[in-house]
Design a protein around this nucleic acid. Structure first.
Length: 483
DNA sequence: ATGTCC
């Protein structure tokens, strides 16, 4: 095996020099400590970081967050920015689950309000109400006309239908809707797959979790977000389901042909792309935005049903419950953003694939309520350990196009995890730690067991120490439903 | 992630 020529910049930054892969236009830059780096070097993800550095119009560096692992084309945990004038846009660098993302909800409850029996009842009720599992269908069956509205209006569609309130939209990245979505550029098959899946959780690492605030690192920021120790929160992690997956598949096909048409040479066809300004590039952008809007509507519906379950199960008033959205963000998406590049403002095509936007205080796109502290960054961990709330920083804006990590990142493949879980009861192991789980299938529980993931605390420590986000609070799981 | 192989 050839050694990877990584150059240490400091304890948390590593450079992958131009030349590691032929045709690199910029270096790669990896955010990691030595221990995480050892895991990262076990798979081919650094090669994928280098491959992305060959893409036309790439700006700065091909970036990798500490939770990177091997993915389709670009690693999960990769950030790729290109210039709108001469750069490309790539579905493989965005990911199959378009606008996979996280939503965090605060409540007025504390841990004491949820003794074990109440918690069990709540988890069972959530599992009964919210469809989970691969291919699951929800209670909303969208007509063709309604489907088009969802794809252009996003979370606002759900709020208009009564699933939530206007304040939810203000507390969401992009207000829960990207302008410029075009439902006409979404295939019939994608529409069909999405029609029955609005308000469903899905499978894999997607979850709905009841948590409590276990530790506060920044009390001023926590106060602005409405978080205090022992408070109950709810986190929802899901995306655009079969609809986004189908859109990615459809456009990967189109981009494969675009490579020939636009004479783009790549080290890996999984990075298939088209010039941003080309017809193909613009069509993918508009379809990708439609999928992103579906995902925002999806998380909005799920939040509303969770709200109903809490009200019914605990038999309290909405006011007493105080079920308010703190923030909702995308961690698989392409955004057109203005950034400073060598002292000049340039418009960039920012691909974040398993990476979270982390804009600083004062930034235009941070909700008014959080302007003083910066954009909330939500980092889901595995179901046995913890999740984090961070905030965006100026350093992130300057170094990583305003980006940070997105989660723990797998260390065991699904297959390896199933093998290691043989003969064990993961359910019991978690219950012994006070965590109540309900999943559609035993296999998901094994695939998603805590040891299948890196320690999210270590990942978060890297981005905190590197300064590309700041720790605000740690959340511990109490009850989880999964697909 | 994903009607985990149209």
């Amino acid at each position: 095996m050839t050694a990877i020529p990584l150059k240490k910049i400091d304890d948390y930054r590593w450079e992958l020099p131009i030349g590691y892969v032929p045709g690199m236009r910029v270096p790669g830059r990896v955010y990691a400590d030595e221990q995480l780096l050892a895991d990262i070097m076990k798979d081919e993800s650094l090669k994928q970081v280098a491959n992305a550095a060959t893409l036309p119009g790439i700006i700065g560096a091909s970036l990798a967050m500490p939770d990177i692992h091997y993915g389709y084309g670009l690693p999960i945990g990769g950030v790729l920015a290109t210039d709108v004038s001469d750069g490309i846009i790539s579905p493989g660098a965005t990911g199959y689950d378009i606008n996979c993302g996280v939503r965090l909800i605060r409540t007025n409850l504390t841990r004491q309000d949820l003794p074990l029996e109440t918690l069990k009842t709540l988890v069972a009720a959530l599992f009964a109400k919210i469809p989970t599992g691969v291919g699951s269908h929800g209670k909303i069956k969208l007509s063709a006309a309604e489907s088009r509205k969802v794809l252009t209006e996003g979370a606002a569609w759900a709020v208009k239908k009564g699933y939530g309130q206007d304040a939810d939209l203000e507390h969401s990245e992009a207000g829960g809707c990207l302008e410029g979505a075009d439902s006409e550029l979404v295939s019939d098959r994608a529409h069909e797959r999405g029609a029955g899946q609005l308000g469903t959780l899905g499978s894999g690492n997607h979850f709905l979790e009841i948590q409590y605030v276990d530790e506060i690192y920044n009390s001023d920021a926590a106060k602005v977000l409405g978080l205090a120790e022992n408070q109950i929160t709810v986190m929802i992690h899901t995306g655009s389901r079969g609809l986004g997956h189908q859109i990615c598949t459809d456009y990967l096909g189109m981009m494969g042909q675009a490579l020939t048409k636009y004479k783009i040479e790549l080290p890996d066809r999984q990075l298939a792309c088209a010039p941003f300004k080309s017809k193909e590039g613009q069509q993918y952008l508009a379809a990708m935005r439609a999928a992103a809007n579906f995902a925002w509507a999806n998380r909005q519906c799920l939040m509303y049903w969770a709200f109903e379950v809490f009200l019914m199960t605990l038999n309290i008033s909405p006011k007493a419950l105080g079920f308010n959205l703190i923030y909702d963000l995308a961690h698989n998406i392409v955004k057109i953003e203005k950034h400073q590049v060598e002292g000049k403002t340039r418009e960039l095509v920012v691909h974040r694939k398993g990476a979270t936007r982390a804009f600083p205080s004062g930034h235009d796109e941070v909700p008014a309520a959080y302007k003083s502290i910066g954009q909330p960054v939500l980092i889901p961990g595995d179901m046995g350990r913890c999740s984090y709330v961070l905030m965006g920083t100026q350093a992130a804006l300057e170094e990583t196009f305003g980006s940070t990590c997105h989660g723990a990142g797998r260390v065991l493949s699904r297959h390896q995890a199933i093998k290691q879980a043989k003969g064990r009861s993961i359910y019991r192991e978690l219950e012994d730690k006070g965590i109540i789980i309900k999943t559609a299938g035993r296999e998901t529980l094994a695939e998603e067991m805590p040891e299948a993931y890196k320690d999210v605390s270590q990942v978060v420590e890297v981005v905190h120490q590197a300064g590309i986000s700041g720790k605000v609070a740690r959340l511990r799981p109490l009850g989880v439903i999964k697909g």
